[in-house]
Each structure stands twice: as structure tokens, then as C-alpha cells.
């Protein structure tokens, strides 16, 4: 491990905040292939962390481990004080606090936009129908598509679908939002509308972990950038440090290839 404690680069102000996600030595294998090699990182409350790295570097695998879509085989993951174990109740508790937005949106095609958003609040949070629908309409307003409530996902553009997906996650009032390459499947002209929603979310103090290839977003919004390669965290730092003065050779190589 080149970096034993990934939080070394955190400013004093950030360090003083509560821990939201604490990963310690997380290992993950797919068959014989080790996808994560002792990933250790702490994400603070209200922090926006962007995870960068070449494809296959384990970025997505890592954040999918955080809400147990993938099961890690070594190390510990603690979310908001609850450790992820095989205990179903812990998994349910963590999933209800962690929202996730996928590359392929994964909206439910057989439900209207409104039903997509209200399904989980109604059945998981047991919200009454009218309350859930009122919230959903507010959220659609917030992501800028209040007029699409009664349409089906297939009738929306990719950017609109991704914004619905964000609204769907927000409806569960999560404490953390995970974004797994949220703009990678979008046409260029739609990327901005999704990033704008994410920026606004960041400004409102949501804790966010974002896997993305959008360097502009990383530079502008991130509190910290984590650079991963081959299943390891290679370098951690502020955007300024990361883009102007990276210390690791592998980071320099990566930046020279994409900038």
C-alpha cells in the first residue's frame, strides 16, 4: 500500500466533522481476480468525494460494496456507525440511508415516473400515499421536470430519466448519495442537466460519493478526489492538489492521458 491512511489529505475543518463512511482494508475478489485490494478511506459528513481512475480500477466495485450490492470479503465497512455484516437488518438499515444512482438509470419501466419515486417511500418508509406523492412532486420540481410525473420512463430522454432516478433516491431521504458513473450513458447535451442537479445537491450539503469521468465536475464540486487504480487507492487530495500537483507517477500518467 502506497497510502496507509487515505484521510491524510483532509483539511482540519473536514477532519473535525463526523465520519459517514469508514472503509478499512476492504478486499473483494471476483473468482481469482482481486478487484479491491485493501481499500481504506473515510468519508465525512456533507463531504463530496469524486472517485477517479481508469476503467477496471475498482471504483464502481468499491461504492457498490458500500450499500452491499456487492459483498466484500475482507476488511470492514461502517456506514453512519453501522457495520455492514451479513445481518439482514443492518443491510436494510444502511440501504435506507444510502441512495444510489446508476449508470443505466435503472428506472422501473412498467411504472409511471410518480410511481417510480413513491414506491419505496410507501412500502419501505410506510409513508401515506398522499404524503409520498406530495414529496415526489416537490422532488420532481427540484430536479426540474415537474411536468413529467405521469409519463413512463420510456417516454423520457436519458437526461430526464437520470434526473428521475436521482429524485427516486432522494425520496428515501438518504444521508449519503452514491453516484455510479451517472453521466456515462448520456448524450453530451444531456450531461449538463444531470450535473447541474448534482451540483445543487452538493451545495445543499448532501454527502456524496461520485464515480465519474467528468473532470470539470470533479474540479468544481469535489471536496476531495480519490484516485484508484488496479483496486487500490493511489492518491487522495483536494482538486487543486490533484490536478495541479499530483505526487504519484500513476496519477500523472492518468491525467496526461485524459486532459
Amino acid at each position: 500500500m502506497s497510502i496507509s491512511d487515505a484521510t491524510t489529505a483532509v483539511s482540519d475543518e473536514l477532519a473535525a466533522r463526523d465520519d459517514m463512511i469508514v472503509c478499512t482494508g476492504v478486499d473483494k475478489w471476483y473468482g481469482d481476480f482481486q478487484a479491491l485490494k485493501g481499500v481504506t478511506a473515510t468519508i465525512k459528513e456533507q463531504e463530496v468525494v469524486v472517485v477517479l481512475g481508469p476503467s477496471g480500477s475498482g471504483k464502481s466495485t468499491w461504492i457498490r460494496c458500500v450499500n452491499r450490492l456487492e459483498q466484500h470479503q475482507g476488511g470492514t465497512i461502517v456506514v453512519d456507525g453501522v457495520e455492514l455484516t451479513n445481518d439482514v437488518r443492518n443491510i436494510e438499515k444502511i440501504r435506507s440511508e444510502v441512495g444510489m444512482v446508476f449508470q443505466q438509470f435503472n428506472l422501473f419501466p412498467h411504472l409511471t415516473v410518480l410511481d417510480n419515486i413513491t414506491l419505496a417511500p410507501k412500502w419501505v418508509k410506510k409513508q401515506p400515499k398522499d404524503v409520498a406523492e406530495e414529496n415526489a412532486r416537490k422532488l420532481l420540481d427540484r430536479v426540474g421536470i415537474p411536468e413529467q410525473a405521469d409519463k413512463y420512463p420510456g417516454q423520457l430522454s436519458g437526461g430526464q430519466q437520470q434526473r428521475v432516478a436521482i429524485a427516486r433516491s432522494l425520496a428515501m431521504e438518504p444521508r449519503v448519495m452514491l453516484f455510479d458513473e451517472p453521466t456515462s450513458a448520456l448524450d453530451p447535451e444531456m450531461i449538463k442537466e444531470v450535473l447541474d442537479v448534482m451540483k445543487e445537491l452538493a451545495q445543499q450539503g448532501m454527502t456524496m460519493v461520485v464515480v465519474t469521468h467528468e473532470m470539470g465536475f470533479a474540479r468544481e464540486v469535489a471536496d476531495r478526489i480519490i484516485f484508484m487504480e488496479a483496486g487500490e487507492i493511489v492518491e487522495v487530495g483536494t482538486p487543486e492538489h490533484f490536478f495541479t500537483n499530483p505526487t504519484e507517477d500513476r496519477t500523472k500518467l492518468f491525467l496526461s492521458q485524459i486532459l
Partner: peptide, 13 residues
């Protein structure tokens, strides 16, 4: 698969 994952991520049983 994404449908299963989305449902899981929302905390549905």
C-alpha cells in the same frame, strides 16, 4: 440485473 439492483438499493425487501 439493474432492476434487481435498483430495488435493492432503495431498500425494498
Amino acid at each position: 440485473r439493474g432492476q434487481f439492483e435498483a430495488a435493492d438499493a432503495l431498500g425494498l425487501t
